[in-house]
């Protein structure tokens, strides 16, 4: 094979290999996306790992509610 023939082979093989590699890389990129977990903030109503805490609306703060719970627990303990 002469030099021109070798160069033609190199060019054609390079073009085809580049196109194939680009397609494979693109598919790999897409498959990687498929394996990533969806971000939680995409949908604020659907939390994947945590339960949303809603503070009590009436009767003051959460702290006051906790004070009441502790007092009740202490009362139970003294009765026991």
């Amino acid at each position: 094979m002469d030099v021109v023939g070798i160069l033609i082979t190199v060019v054609v093989v390079t073009i085809l290999v580049t196109i194939i590699l680009a397609i494979v890389t693109y598919i790999a990129y897409k498959l990687r996306l498929a394996r990533e977990p969806a971000r939680a903030e995409d949908d604020p109503d659907t939390l994947r790992y945590f339960v949303r805490y809603d503070a009590p609306s009436a009767g003051g703060s959460t702290l006051r509610q906790l004070d009441g719970d502790i007092a009740a627990m202490e009362g139970n303990a003294s009765q026991a």
């Binding site: 021109v4 082979t9 060019v11 196109i19």
Partner: peptide, 25 residues
């Protein structure tokens, strides 16, 4: 660009027009 390169590669393989492609490149 992609289709042009693909066309040249195929023409070179099937119809032996490799020199034309080479000079183009």
């Amino acid at each position: 660009n992609v289709l042009a390169h693909l066309f040249f590669a195929i023409v070179a393989i099937l119809f032996g027009a490799g020199e034309f492609i080479l000079y183009w490149i």
